[in-house]
Amino acid sequence: MQRVNHDIVSSIIFIFVAAFALWETRGLSEMSYVFPRTAGIILLVCSIIFFIKSIIKKEDKKAFDDINKRKVMVMSLGMIGYLIVIGLVGFLIASIIYIWAFCFYLQRDEKEKSNKSKMLHAGITAFGVSIFFFVLFKFVFAVPLPPGIFFGG
């Protein structure tokens, strides 16, 4: 199977990013565009060189081979989910849910532990970490924490 070369793909993405950044500087005054335009041109030139280089010298890199794709996906989606839940129910509850769920999920390879004790340990961590830092930030440092739509904090 022909693999997609990551270098080619990333160089094309960067060419687009640079072109877009340059396009966006239109209509600005000289003092506002001089710097982003310079940086954009550098990026464009480097990306084009990189593109040519990666076409000439095709290296078959397997960037994502040695990883557990599923775990990485779950972890990434988990962070996004965490974010959404914070927006809904506020920081403290979201954090307890998130840490609990992920401490449990990440223990799946621990064969010698029973599900019940995994659940328990994850729960202790979740409550311990969340509440400790919540109190520390909110009451000691008086730093506000993200509130949700439905709950204050």
Partner: peptide
């Protein structure tokens, strides 16, 4: 499995 979720929590 304890460390990773706790670090994510701290980053937030």
């Amino acid at each position: 499995y304890y460390l990773a979720p706790s670090i994510v929590f701290l980053t937030i």
